[in-house]
Design a protein around this nucleic acid. Structure first.
Lengths: 239, 239
DNA sequence: ACCTGAACACCGTTCAAGT
DNA sequence: ACCTGAACACCGTTCAAGT
C-alpha cells in the first residue's frame, strides 16, 4: 500500500515494472490479437507514454520474448502440477509419458494463449523455463541407449514438430476474423465444387476433409513421433 | 515493342499487371526480407504510386496470397519435372515415393523462397496449384485400404507437419540479421554455460545439439511420417 | 531514476482528382 | 480504365527535456 499523498501526482499507483508490463501486454495480445500489441496501444492501456517501456526493454522484440518466457513458465508450471513425481518422487516415469505430458502442456498454451504462441513459437528466449523443458526431454530420451547425435535429432524432431504444428494452429486462430473467414471459405471451395474428373480423390474425401480438427492432427503427430522414437530404441531397452 | 511517342509520358513502359506485380513483389521480399514488402516500397520499385496496386488487388493480403500461389505453382512445376510418369505415364508410382517427392519439392521452396514461405505457410490460397498438390497426396493415400476419416487425418498430418516445420525454418531464416544473431547466441548460452548439477542431460549433449540442422530434422520428419502411415496400412496392402 | 513529448521515418488504405 | 496525390489513422524508436 502506497500513501496517495506521497505518490508522484503524474503516475498515481501506475509504477511500471517489467513484470507488470509483461502481464498487461500478454492480456492485450490475447484479448485483441497480436496486431493490437503495439507500444502506443500498450501505453494507453497502462496510462503511460508509449516510449516509457524503453526504460524496461531494449526494444519491442525483447518485450515479446519476455511474454514468451512467461508462457513457457506456465507450461512448466502445468507440467509440475500433474507430474506423478509429486506423489512418488522416486519413481522414474516412462519416457513416453514424459513426452505426452509435455505435448499436452504445449497444446494447452496453444488453446489458452494462441496470440503469444503464434508470436514466439519460432523464437528462442534462452530463459530458465525453456532450459528446463529442454532438460526434461533430453533426460527422458538419454537412457534409451542411442548415440548422442540420434538423441538430439529425435529431441529436435519432437519439440520442433509440436512447436511448429501448434504455432501454425495458433497463427490461424489469431488471424483477423475476416481473414479467417476467407481461409475457411477457400477450403470449402477447394473441397466442394471441383471438377469430378480432375480431382477424384479430393471429391471422394470432401466430407471427411472438412471434419478434421487441428487438435486431432496434433494428437496424431504425438502418436507418430513416439512410434518413430520407439522404433529406434534397441529392443533390449524397449520397456 | 511500344512506340515511345504514343506511350503515356507518366508511365513509360511500366504498365502494371497482376503477374508483373507478383513477380516484382516476390523478388523484393526474397531480396530484402518479408518486412521490406510494403506497398510504398513496391511502388518505388515499380515506379508507381503505392496506391496503384489497389486497382489489381483488394488489399495487401490478396497480394501476399497471390505471391504464395506463385510459389506453390513452382512446387507443382518441380514435381512434374522429376516425375517418373514423364518416362512411363502408365506406371503407378509407390505412394512413399510420391510423398517423398512432394516433401522434397516443398523443402526446395523453403530454401529458395524462404521469405514467401514464411509469409504463407499457415494460409490457404485455394488456387489451382494448391488443389493439385492436395489431389496428389490424397490420390497416393486413397488406395491403401483405410477408412476415409483415417486417410484425411494422415493427409493433414503429412502436409501440416511439413508446411509448419518448413515455415518455422523459413521464418528463422528471414528474421532480421541482428535477431538471428540473438537467437543463435541464446542457444549457445542454453547449451553451454549451464550448471552441470541441474542440467546433466543438456550438458551431456551440448556438442551434438549445436550440430543439428533444420534440414536433418525435416528429413527425419519425412521418414517418421511415412513410417507411421505404413504402420496403419493393412498388411495385405503394404507393397 | 523514471517518464514525457516532440520528432523522424515509416505503415495500409480511402477517395477525389487527373489523364 | 488506370494511376496520382493528398489525407487519415496508425507504427517503432530516439533524444532532449522535465520531475
Amino acid at each position: 500500500m502506497q500513501d496517495p499523498a506521497t505518490a508522484p501526482a503524474t503516475t498515481p499507483g501506475t509504477a511500471l515494472s517489467a513484470h507488470h508490463i509483461v502481464t498487461t501486454a500478454l492480456d492485450l495480445a490475447e484479448r485483441e490479437g497480436p496486431a493490437a500489441l503495439t507500444m502506443r496501444r500498450l501505453g494507453r492501456e497502462m496510462g503511460v507514454d508509449a516510449t516509457a517501456f524503453y526504460r524496461h526493454f531494449r526494444d519491442k522484440d525483447e518485450l515479446v520474448l519476455a511474454i514468451g518466457d512467461r508462457m513457457i513458465g506456465q507450461v512448466l508450471a502445468d507440467l509440475r502440477a500433474d507430474s506423478p513425481a509429486n506423489a512418488d518422487p522416486a519413481a522414474s516415469e516412462d519416457w513416453r509419458d514424459v513426452l505426452r505430458r509435455i505435448a499436452a502442456a504445449l497444446l494447452g498454451q496453444v488453446h489458452v494463449r494462441p496470440a503469444v504462441f503464434s508470436m514466439v513459437f519460432a523464437r528462442t528466449t534462452g530463459g530458465p523455463s525453456e532450459r528446463q523443458v529442454v532438460e526434461m526431454i533430453l533426460a527422458a530420451l538419454a537412457p534409451l541407449g542411442l548415440p548422442p547425435e540420434r538423441v538430439v535429432l529425435l529431441y529436435r524432431l519432437f519439440i520442433d514438430t509440436l512447436l511448429s504444428l501448434g504455432g501454425m494452429s495458433a497463427t490461424v486462430r489469431t488471424l483477423p476474423p475476416e481473414i479467417i473467414e476467407k481461409d475457411a471459405s477457400a477450403w470449402s471451395r477447394v473441397y466442394a465444387g471441383m471438377p469430378h474428373a480432375d480431382f477424384p480423390a479430393t471429391r471422394e474425401h470432401a466430407t471427411a476433409l472438412v471434419a478434421v480438427t487441428d487438435d486431432s492432427i496434433y494428437d496424431a503427430a504425438v502418436d507418430s513421433l513416439i512410434f518413430f522414437i520407439e522404433s529406434q530404441v534397441p529392443t533390449d531397452r524397449r520397456s
